[in-house]
Design a protein around this nucleic acid. Structure first.
Length: 112
RNA sequence: AGAGCAUAUCGAACAGUCGCGUAUAAAAUUCGCAAGAAUUUAUAUGAGGAAAGUCCGGGCUCCACAGAGCAAGGAUGCUGGAUAACGUCCAGUGAGGGUGACCUCAAGGAAAGUGCAACAGAAAAUAACAGCCUUGCUGGAAGUUAGAAAUUAGAGAUGAGUUUAUAAUUUUAUAAUAUCUGACCUCUAAUUUCUGGCUUCUAGCAAGGUAACGGUGAAAAGGUGAGGUAAGAGCUUACCGCUAAUAUGGUGACAUAUUAGGUCAAUGUAAACCCCAUCCGGAGCAACACCUAAAAAGAAGGUUAAGACUGCUCGUCAUCUUCUAAAAUGGUGGCUUGAUAUAUAUAGUAAUAUAUAUACUAGAUAAAUGGCUGUUCAAGACAGAACCCGGCUUAUAGAUAUGCUCAAAAU
RNA sequence: UGGGGUGUAGCCAAGUGGUAAGGCACCAGACUUUGACUCUGGCAUUUCGGCGGUUCGAGUCCUCCCACCCCAG
């Protein structure tokens, strides 16, 4: 079971966003809620106001790549939803900015 | 080398490494009630010229059939061709633009009917009004003619005065008196006034003729010259324009030529309603089909009803339709070999068609192309498939090729 | 995927093809000792989201774009 399991349905997202714990960084908001399974589930959401489809895809790829790098070290049994902030300009960040942001938030949430 | 026009092509490349989707093969393991899914390894493969906007057209699926007619609604609108089809494309015609290469055009009908045309202007479509001209009546002015009156001048006649002589008494009478002379009178001429007639001009009224001219306006009833007329006018004529017919050329739009037409009066607007011609049944892959476990059925209506956007009628098919309630946040297919792409040949001006050969080049379903390192250069624009094709439109850093135009310079 | 709507001054907005109404706000003046209220005047820079077209003339009609909002499965 190495493959990342994704959150899919709208009710799953709503459960995490309403009842989970929130932490905010410079670029990202991350919500966490405990599920009673032995795996982590990931959901990514990027607003339509972030840009056109190319930019939104690029953002999702960066987030997914970073999550992949951190995935081995995370504690098991959580549903994680990563939201992109709307107001960030597409040209003002790179891969390392996203990496640092995710690292800081996971450290703050004490699941790393 | 500069400025530009048209057409076509490309739109970062390479290496290493970590990772992702799909297909095939292999073996087992895991998850799930099941259908089925996942994991590991190997190999192969993996976004565009616009994938975009969703503006047209078609395939495909369902709506019993996808049939007919009328109405309503919508779309298109020069000609010929191409195409599965189109609002697309190609080749032409006409109109407009550009010095030019070339570009642009929803380009049928306004004597079938209706509507609208602000302001200005006489008037925005019936031709009215002002003006011009003719005739009649009434008035005014000028000229001419006839008559009357007045004034002036000239002539004639008359005789007063002056002078002289004579007679008688200072005065009076008589006679004479010149190229002298006032008035009256007569005649003639001129001027002025009055009256009548005629002519011309003019004002008003009435009847008629006329549409050239009338400041405006986007647009004013063919244009210009000459003749003509009471005044005028296509009223006549020349040229230009317009319309029609015929002939020739062209498949055709149309072009050219000839002839005729002055009833050549009737403006513009149809991207205002409208008329004419042609076309259009509706909904969409979240369509639709299949598989698995679970579940719950009840009520009402029905051949005069209902049957996937509107109304009516006809035909035909078929037995179901509606409402309430319940049940999976299940799975698989549909899904990519097609009006396909590339190359060559033939036909055609071309769009395109036919034939042969070669190729199979994404198929996801919360959704795959990314991260890091290095090298190169022009330093990377617009931008991400979601059932599939043909177009259109819009965005786009730049690069390349071919043909052509203009200007300048040189020869 | 399909369907519908909106765009006019800083804000809310009306608008038959023929001079872009009105209100709030803002600015100036009057009134007042001063302020508020009230009254008067001004404020669309050739312009109605944008490029074109039809028309003598487009906010309005047509075409194509842009932005925003809503609905259905």
């Amino acid at each position: 079971m190495k493959k990342t399991v994704m959150l899919k349905k709208n009710y799953e997202f709503r459960g995490v966003l309403n009842k989970g714990i929130c932490s905010r960084g410079f670029l990202l908001d991350i919500y966490i809620r405990k599920n009673n399974k032995k795996i982590n589930q990931l959901g990514i959401a990027v607003s339509k106001k972030a840009g056109n489809s190319v930019k939104r895809n690029k953002i999702k790829r960066l987030i997914r790549e970073n999550y992949r790098l951190f995935e081995k070290d995370l504690d098991v049994g959580n549903s994680i939803v990563i939201l992109w902030k709307k107001k960030i300009d597409y040209n003002n960040f790179n891969f390392y900015d996203v990496k640092n942001d995710i690292f800081n938030i996971f450290t703050k949430l004490k699941i790393l």
